[in-house]
Design a protein around this nucleic acid. Sequence first.
DNA 1: AAAAGATGTAAATATTAATATTACATCATA
DNA 2: TATGATGTAATATTAATATTTACATCTTTT
Lengths: 143, 143
Amino acid sequence: MQISMKCSIAIHCLIFIYEAKGIAKVTSNLLAESTGCNPVIIRNIISSLKKAGLISVARGTGGAELCIKPSEITLYQIYNALEPDGLSSLIGIHPCKDRKCPVAQNIQKVLQSPYQKIEDSIKETMKNITLQSMIDDFHMIVN
Amino acid sequence: MQISMKCSIAIHCLIFIYEAKGIAKVTSNLLAESTGCNPVIIRNIISSLKKAGLISVARGTGGAELCIKPSEITLYQIYNALEPDGLSSLIGIHPCKDRKCPVAQNIQKVLQSPYQKIEDSIKETMKNITLQSMIDDFHMIVN
DNA sequence: AAAAGATGTAAATATTAATATTACATCATA
DNA sequence: TATGATGTAATATTAATATTTACATCTTTT
């Protein structure tokens, strides 16, 4: 499992939703058009963000809106909303526990601490990146 | 692209090579047996580690040995040996630059800084983890 | 000098994971 | 009730990984 395009698409959607506020109703088709991916992919991502409480989506009439101020939405929240298993699925370990070799039997335990450190550092970094900062960057780049 | 099993397998091999020193000749078949994966996979990983100067492999007669002290081999070196594109391939961005939407046109630039921060933090963490520390952990667990 | 046992790689295949599509039930407003 | 939207399951497609096969090459031993 990687930090997949889903995360990038989600950020794209959130910025779009923010920018479109008061201008246009943000439907999954509109987001699909902007991101270049399928409406169902969008609906799934949108659905995850909704479950995480980051956005609200009007059923029937349609349209997505932010529930929380961009300054209070972190990249970690976004990532976590999308990946139910979180960062623990980021790094793969080969299965070899049932072998005779003592290295094989213990490699999983040996790797646990280093990999945990990596996950923790990603988590910390993600927590320090807000949607607001990305929106600010967007405005900076556009103007 | 993820931080794949290759990395775990490489660490497995390096610990094995260290532990086997003076006891057995470490061939790709032996490593394949211990890790549970194919000898060709092992030979490819071993080849990468060799190119990175971490180990030396005797041609013909066979057998791998560490070239550098475990305390001077970092997880970052190991990872980099295996992934030619490095961490920059870790996080995916959806292609949408050719669209009319201003968000689509600029999302790539917006994402660059956050993703760079994540990569840097992984890099820093990996640099602080040595093969020696993992070998120490291994001994601690076994005894 | 040839046999044995290794590595080094290319190429073909198989497997698995990620992404996209189709289809349809459900919902809310005009 | 027609329209345009969301929600989600099932399936198909594509791309990334891993495996296998095959064989050239290398070095020591006999």
